[in-house]
Design a protein around this nucleic acid. Structure first.
Lengths: 149, 149
DNA sequence: TATTGTTATACTCTATAACTATA
DNA sequence: TATAGTTATAGAGTATAACAATA
């Protein structure tokens, strides 16, 4: 049986990992003029093409007001533009600029590089053990969260 | 050999875990009137006893101004008090109220419960695999980060 | 009437710089 | 002269509510 201490210890490692990763990504993003809050906007459009602000708000589970602010920031820093929606004159379509598209591709590339650095030369058994453990924890977390809401 | 796709896949699971855990803890904290930024202040004092704001700022790697704001919030919501420092009249000592101390103990308890829920009935082999994988990843991340700064 | 996005307002978190009181 | 903490100022991120334009 796994002791309570060991369980708390592993949870603390997960939290430490969380904290280090988020600090690290914040710094990298600042280097290219982005923030952690704005990246999901860029990412959605990168993956799914031009999007209305309403669609972004729904996808990100934030208020319409918040999206207005995030898009304002991305427009000012040159990552996206607001274009008229082709059929609905109430809506705007948020579109990547050339620079925005390039930075999105770069972010994708950097994620691959980080993965390579974290797992390079890791024994396959260790890697698979990590993956299986993460799967189990994620499955349990999803049950807990869904049980809440 | 582990494929690049699998590596990116596992990194994405770590990021998903990060995101779910932080959303979940934010909600729990809001229930007791706390925020993620204020918790580290409470936690430090819970673990190390009364502290000056300067010590808090250094430990948390944030500005003195920021600590003033965090302590203001914790005072207003009844978790801590500012007391005169016994020997240095420039400094204030931040101390837990009875309620603050109780909530800190509750948070500790809740963390144990979360650990139990995440790992309950997990086969020892899976648990150990997860722990070993996390250890390796943390070690590599620390090398990468130290290499940066 | 309902929906899209903005303006108005407010609160939290964060920072730098100037300043006060003390060491 | 140096240090502890505050005030002044600023910007990002978040929210709700009221409103304008359009569906």
């Amino acid at each position: 049986m796994v002791s309570t201490e060991d369980q708390v210890d592993v949870l603390n490692r997960i939290l430490a990992l969380t904290s280090i990763l988020s600090d690290d990504t914040s710094r990298s993003l600042a280097d290219v003029g982005l923030t952690t809050s704005r990246v999901p906007v860029l990412w959605r459009i990168h993956l799914g093409g031009p999007s209305t602000q309403r669609q972004l708000a729904d996808a990100m589970h934030v208020s319409a007001r918040n999206v207005t602010g995030l898009v304002d920031g991305l427009v000012q820093t040159g990552f996206v533009t607001r274009e008229p929606h082709p059929t609905d004159r109430r809506a705007t379509q948020v579109t990547l600029t050339r620079r925005g598209a390039k930075v999105a591709r770069d972010l994708e590339q950097q994620q691959h590089e980080l993965a390579a650095q974290l797992f390079a030369d890791m024994p396959t058994a260790t890697f698979n053990g990590l993956r299986d453990g993460l799967d189990q924890v994620l499955a349990r977390l999803r049950v807990l969260i869904v049980g809440d809401s």
